[in-house]
Nucleic acid binder design. Sequence first.
DNA 1: CCAATAAGTCAACATGACTGACATAACGTC
DNA 2: GACGTTATGTCAGTCATGTTGACTTATTGG
Lengths: 193, 193
Amino acid sequence: MTDITSDGPSDHLATSGRLPHAGEEGRRPLGSDLLACIELFYFAYRGFTCEPDTILEQYGFGRAHHRVLHFVNRNPGLKVAELLDILRITKQSLARVLKQLVDEGFIIQKAGNEDRRERRLYLSAKGARLTDKLTQIQAKRIEGALAGLGSGADALTRNFLFAMVAEKDRPRVEALMNGLHSGPLAEEPDCNP
Amino acid sequence: MTDITSDGPSDHLATSGRLPHAGEEGRRPLGSDLLACIELFYFAYRGFTCEPDTILEQYGFGRAHHRVLHFVNRNPGLKVAELLDILRITKQSLARVLKQLVDEGFIIQKAGNEDRRERRLYLSAKGARLTDKLTQIQAKRIEGALAGLGSGADALTRNFLFAMVAEKDRPRVEALMNGLHSGPLAEEPDCNP
DNA sequence: CCAATAAGTCAACATGACTGACATAACGTC
DNA sequence: GACGTTATGTCAGTCATGTTGACTTATTGG
């Protein structure tokens, strides 16, 4: 085992004045509420994906498959290029999971009517069944979480979540919310807002 | 390229009556709000982690390192076993990132005062600097998101997020919120609430 | 002294990201 | 009709992070 000879906390700081704020009561210097939110967001997202993950596992699928199923469900006839743009992953990453979903009959591809190069994506009955199951689980969790918070929490939460979306994703997300297939947005530099 | 001979949408359903609800206006059958939330949560979490990820990359670190830094910052003197319990990953997964953080001087390990088998974890000044940078970015994003939502949004959002946490994680998360190092909780079966 | 505990380590594996290069089919234009 | 562009698929290789199971080492405490 690595050699560790020092004897307990001494020179290791860990109590610097980061995030200056009033009310240093003990160990939680400041912005304690925001720090709590950061942590909560992590745990909340874990709670959000936990149950679907266990179900997907039974199909040999992962969270990546879930995302594809979700967005195809929400936007039947979605093009591969659009899906790539939504997920912001590479062609290869998508190809892997999409191939599985198609091969196993969860997703159906059809050549586009106007442009036969396009592969429009649809859920099969099987795919719809699985997606519904996952959606209902997540919808119930959200419904349950909102239930305890009084009326108006619904819209407020949606607004909060939307405000958390990266700036460069907002127009696209907004379009998805409205069910519009607006064309690909203008390219923007990178992640940083 | 795979053979695709069918001609556009026909027998592929994708408009089943899942999540029965009134007001089928077009393509978004129902529970549309909840569906929107599901999607928003995904995009929001992506927005939440996006900027830190780019910074971490410059250090050769990933999100896993961030989580360790965060929880050690929040709970100086954390034991390895506790961290494992919080993150719910395996010893090996943690060991990999923790070793890097220790080797590169972001985290300091000290043998426990009472029980010298324990390795208590602390941030070094270097580690605190990086953690602060990441924390401030995320705190600012949350602050900004809450700013537009009127007073009370703060607490309501925390309550929503907490309600999203998996049932089995709640006591532990609650304890973390209170800055308490309560001992490990009783084991529970698995993920499903 | 010895069993149990905290932590570290090794080997092997799976998933889902990434890159860059290349193949194929269809579209549109000259 | 040939040709460049576009949409998609595919190959080969890499990396980060998760997994398992077995084993070592240091320390504790009865």
